[in-house]
Simulated assay, not measured.
Amino acid sequence: MATRKTYHVTHVNGHWQGKLEGAERASVTSDHKDEAVAKTVEIAKKNLPSSVRIHKLDGTIEDERTFMDDPYPPKG
Rank of each mutant, 00 (worst) to 15 (best):
D31T: 11
T66F: 13
T3W: 01
F67Q: 05
K45F: 04
R53Y: 01
T29D: 01
E21L: 14
V12G: 06
K33L: 12
H55G: 07
T40R: 04
H55M: 07
T40E: 02
K39Y: 01
S50H: 01
K46A: 12
P74V: 12
E35H: 10
I61E: 15
K46E: 11
T3N: 08
K75D: 13
D70C: 09
V9I: 11
L57V: 08
G59N: 07
T66V: 15
V9T: 04
V37D: 00
Y72C: 08
L48C: 03
P71H: 01
D58E: 08
M68Y: 06
D34F: 08
A36W: 00
N47M: 03
D58R: 03
R25E: 12
T10S: 14
Q17D: 04
T10F: 10
S27Y: 04
K39R: 14
T6I: 15
R53N: 09
A23E: 10
P49L: 03
P49H: 00
H11K: 11
P73N: 01
R25C: 00
T40S: 05
V28K: 07
M68C: 08
N47Q: 11
K45H: 07
I43G: 03
K46V: 00
A2S: 11
S30L: 02
Q17N: 10
H32I: 12
P71T: 01
D31A: 11
P71G: 02
M68L: 13
A23I: 10
E35P: 01
E21F: 15
W16Q: 04
D58M: 05
G76T: 05
D58I: 07
R25A: 14
G18N: 02
H15F: 14
Y72V: 15
K45G: 06
L48S: 04
A44S: 12
V37A: 02
E24Y: 10
I54S: 04
D63E: 15
P73M: 04
A38I: 02
E62I: 00
S27D: 14
D69Q: 14
D69W: 02
A23Y: 13
D58K: 09
Q17G: 11
G14Y: 08
V28R: 06
H8I: 13
V9P: 01
P73K: 05
V41M: 14
I61F: 02
T29A: 06
R53T: 09
K39H: 07
